[in-house]
Design a protein around this nucleic acid. Structure first.
Lengths: 193, 193, 193, 193
DNA sequence: CTATAACCGAGACGGTACGTCGGGTCTTTTA
DNA sequence: TAAAAGACCCGACGTACCGTCTCGGTTATAG
């Protein structure tokens, strides 16, 4: 309904900034649209006009932060899959283990559970590209004969990421670099030709 | 503070029943303490007296349902790890794929994200026993020389469950029996001696 | 500030028409500037540019309707004050009793209560002329010796109109032609020489 | 729906007090339910639970103020209708002319215009008794042969009050004690036997 | 015959208040 | 003394309009 060409860039940025600050300060659960509007110096309607929910605001905030430094998502290809994979896995574990960074990620994951449209957005704009980057590296390794060719790269990615994700969300045990390496090792054994 | 011996069993059951019904009808997100109290014909205080949060009520409801038919959690040991494991994994996938059954599980998982005490409860009373049952079977296989001995059984369990869990929560792809077998197969290869 | 010579006659009429329609449809209380603008196919600013409030718009609407057929406000002078007065009073009562017509009049009266500038406008442009017309007829009767000369004609008018007005606004009893005659009779007795 | 026996007297009084204070401070138009709740230290719901509108709150406030000193509404009967009537009319004019006192009265009158239920309440609980008190005195005078018997006392009251009311609401001229006496004199002449 | 200034439509914006919902606490009555 | 009932304070919700503010576009005098 609203005309995006009329949209105030100033307000948009203020809202995203305020939202990210507040998430850090009070947590996603206690984040309210009213507080975002107040902090951003914006009317509530301006938020409701452009976002369907606070989750969508936070997603945009995360995406803005991610795209701010548009580091290449794609993995290095040194020729050594094991090393390359170990690198990302360690990085992922580090990020998940950082209470600051993982707070919003938890929030997004939570929100995906009962908002299918939002879930689709997260998958498309945030999750998909990250998983695809890893899948691409694994596919290259398959083509180089370093990994079995009869495994769907997407499944291969889940084999590595799944365990980390499980431990992260359920907090059944600490997420350590060692654990990252252990999981990487096991996955590589499963995928060995 | 309250004296558990004075507790009304009738009210307790009515509350758990009402909570489980309502979760099914409106979903966990729209579940309210007020609605539970109204449906159960109970004062709100009676709920607040015995449970710290609606999540705790639902957890008790789930546990009551699970323990109603106290089927043995432990896996069969036919001597064939692969077959035994494939069995549970398929069962788990089936349960996760059932929208009715997995609704509350999603809710519990969600609630664990920002309530550490509740998370501990879920781990102790619901999750732990289930994971331990699988770990036990894998340990037996290790001792029988069918699986590598140098992998922590808990980690081995995560290797199998993690991917399912990832796909279930993020809905990146459908959870099928085929997928269950694929993951089982890959995990077993990783754990092979 | 704005230049009246540039004013769009088309918009002016559309606004007044829309306002009067909406007042009839939803009542003055629920009348909004936004609705007027929308109905008139006009930007809100165009209303704010030319009128200080929605009350002023409605007043202009009423005046436009009244002046559309520019019937002479002045009372007939048949020589018989009683008859002439009874005529207007009946007409006034009839108008006040018409729910359609009196709706906007009520609105104007209401708005006068807390907007002195607007009140002045109503008095000057709508109310004054009407009251003066009656006062003029009574003054003529005084000069003809038919009524006491020591009563301010304006006060005399209030003596007749006041009771009608009271009953109309407070709805303490129905406004009937009979009542009109009763009040006229009493007033004439008070004013008799 | 709510059970009046459970009602908090403390809250009721705080709300009425806050409402009357705020009406005096900011006027009826700018009076908001939120402000009343805030000033009274009360949840908004508590107001909505017991009153249908801010007008109803103010009416209750006025009634509470009026009934606080339960002065007899009935007029004195010195045997001299003229004197007795002149007394009340002067008192009424004085009250209407007091900007402080008449503020709420104006508000109630305004609100009556588009809320029939509220109008009925005002008539029943506030206006009726006052008008009836005057009517009673006039009826006594009729029975004593001091006034014409063929005029409905209620109409007689309107003959006196109507003009004051008209001048008060439309502010066509100042409301002075002199005017009170003039109107009283005219009305008595009309009602003379 | 432009150009430059105004009005105009549209509608986004910062705000205020609305009336509602539910949370968690407190109070009253009943068993 | 637990429990039912439900009023209470509170905070946030999402909506409706307010009055102000751009934004292009279209007239319509003035150079």
């Amino acid at each position: 309904m609203p005309d995006p060409s009329r949209r105030s860039e100033r307000s948009r940025r203020a809202i995203l900034t305020a939202a990210m600050e507040l998430v850090r300060e009070v947590g996603y659960r206690k984040l309210t649209i009213e507080a975002i509007a107040a902090r951003a110096g914006v009317g509530k309607q301006t938020i409701y006009r452009w976002w369907p929910s606070k989750a969508a605001v936070v997603l945009d905030g995360v995406l803005a932060a991610v795209n701010e430094d548009p580091h290449d998502l794609s993995l290095p290809d040194t020729g050594d899959v094991a090393a390359d994979l170990r690198g990302v896995v360690r990085a992922i574990v580090a990020e998940l283990d950082d209470p600051e960074l993982s707070g919003t990620t938890r929030a997004l994951t939570v929100e995906m559970q009962d908002d299918p449209e939002f879930a689709e957005m997260v998958r498309e704009r945030l999750l998909g590209p990250q998983l695809r980057a890893i899948a691409d590296r694994l596919r290259a390794a398959q083509e180089a004969g370093q990994l079995r060719a009869d495994v769907d790269p997407a499944v291969a990615v889940e084999l590595v990421i799944g365990p980390l994700y499980h431990r992260w969300l359920l907090r059944t045990a600490p997420l350590t670099p060692d654990y990252a390496d252990t999981v990487t090792g096991l996955a590589l054994r499963a995928l060995a030709p």
